[in-house]
Simulated assay, not measured.
Amino acid sequence: MPFTLATWNINSVRLREGLVARLMREETPDVLCLQECKSPVEKIPMDQFQALGYTHMVARGQKGYNGVAILSKLPMQEVGSQDFAALGHARHIAGQLENGVTIHNFYVPAGGDKPDRAINEKFGQKLDYLTEMRDWFHDDRPEKSILVGDLNIAPREDDVWSHKQLLKVVSHTPIEVEHLGQTQEAGNWVDITRQDIPDGQLYSWWSYRARDWDAADKGRRLDHVWATPDISNAAHSSRIRRDVRGWEQPSDHAPVFATFDL
């Protein structure tokens, strides 16, 4: 049974309820994974989403910060969450579909402004979070699984608008790229987006600070879809809906899609 999955850092699901509903109507993904929901679970505005067919949800939330949710048209049961680096943050949730596929939804810490853990606690937390993700996947190797989310790292040179200019900017520093690579390797994860779109500049995030984000096009690919090798060949049709970044009062992220024939 084919299903289409989307991942989107929504930057407040309550503030942007209308945008989520619009995406649901226009794209009708079977599964929509949201990050940075900034809401307790009980206050996620599910009435409209359920009316659009998204009758299943697994989520972790907290007031005003972080938060992850998986909204699904397909039956799904929660299979746990992890608090990596013991931050006490709502940054991970996992759900399992009836076909046995487990979907992990992550919101990795952004890491602050300075890429130096000696002066920036948030950067150290980010590295520690990734290290514990790596160790978890190494100890419990995933199978028949998909990992999505805002991983807050653009790993490849063509995942950013300027590799040289961003080497010392949080999200593209060599140490972050190394940590993300180790995490990916530990779970034997396949980068589905780049499997489908192997060449060329590709972004999913554009800063609010840019006066004209579209013309400046100083983007980064921070949002990812990975899959384990046993199902990676079933994935296709990856794309990023860049135009969503231009909707009224948008998130600074665009949704990323992939379809799996499973």
Results as ranks from 00 to 15, higher is better:
residue 189 W to M: 07
residue 204 S to P: 11
residue 190 V to P: 03
residue 198 P to I: 03
residue 229 P to W: 10
residue 216 A to H: 08
residue 200 G to D: 12
residue 213 W to Q: 07
residue 193 T to D: 07
residue 197 I to M: 07
residue 207 S to G: 10
residue 200 G to S: 12
residue 215 A to V: 11
residue 221 R to M: 04
residue 208 Y to T: 05
residue 216 A to P: 04
residue 219 G to N: 11
residue 199 D to C: 00
residue 182 Q to A: 12
residue 182 Q to W: 10
residue 201 Q to S: 13
residue 210 A to P: 01
residue 193 T to H: 13
residue 214 D to P: 00
residue 198 P to W: 04
residue 179 H to T: 09
residue 229 P to T: 13
residue 188 N to Q: 15
residue 191 D to T: 10
residue 209 R to Y: 00
residue 220 R to I: 06
residue 187 G to R: 10
residue 192 I to D: 03
residue 222 L to D: 06
residue 205 W to Q: 08
residue 203 Y to V: 11
residue 221 R to D: 02
residue 204 S to K: 03
residue 179 H to S: 12
residue 186 A to G: 11
residue 186 A to H: 08
residue 195 Q to H: 07
residue 224 H to M: 14
residue 191 D to A: 08
residue 226 W to Q: 00
residue 185 E to M: 14
residue 223 D to L: 14
residue 218 K to C: 05
residue 203 Y to E: 06
residue 191 D to V: 12
residue 193 T to Q: 07
residue 217 D to K: 13
residue 221 R to T: 01
residue 207 S to Y: 10
residue 229 P to D: 10
residue 214 D to S: 07
residue 221 R to Y: 00
residue 220 R to A: 09
residue 182 Q to N: 14
residue 180 L to I: 11
residue 198 P to N: 02
residue 196 D to V: 04
residue 186 A to K: 04
residue 214 D to L: 12
residue 206 W to D: 01
residue 204 S to T: 14
residue 181 G to L: 08
residue 189 W to C: 01
residue 218 K to V: 01
residue 185 E to N: 13
residue 211 R to C: 05
residue 207 S to E: 13
residue 214 D to I: 04
residue 229 P to Y: 00
residue 176 E to Q: 05
residue 193 T to K: 01
residue 182 Q to E: 15
residue 228 T to L: 10
residue 198 P to M: 04
residue 218 K to P: 01
residue 188 N to H: 15
residue 206 W to S: 02
residue 223 D to I: 13
residue 216 A to C: 06
residue 185 E to I: 07
residue 229 P to H: 03
residue 179 H to I: 00
residue 217 D to W: 06
residue 179 H to M: 15
residue 185 E to K: 15
residue 205 W to H: 10
residue 207 S to H: 10
residue 206 W to T: 02
residue 208 Y to L: 02
residue 191 D to L: 12
residue 193 T to M: 14
residue 206 W to Y: 01
residue 194 R to T: 08
residue 177 V to D: 02
residue 226 W to L: 13
residue 216 A to L: 11
residue 183 T to Q: 09
residue 179 H to K: 15
residue 214 D to G: 00
residue 196 D to P: 01
residue 227 A to K: 01
residue 181 G to F: 10
residue 209 R to V: 09
residue 194 R to V: 08
residue 213 W to M: 12
residue 193 T to A: 09
residue 211 R to E: 05
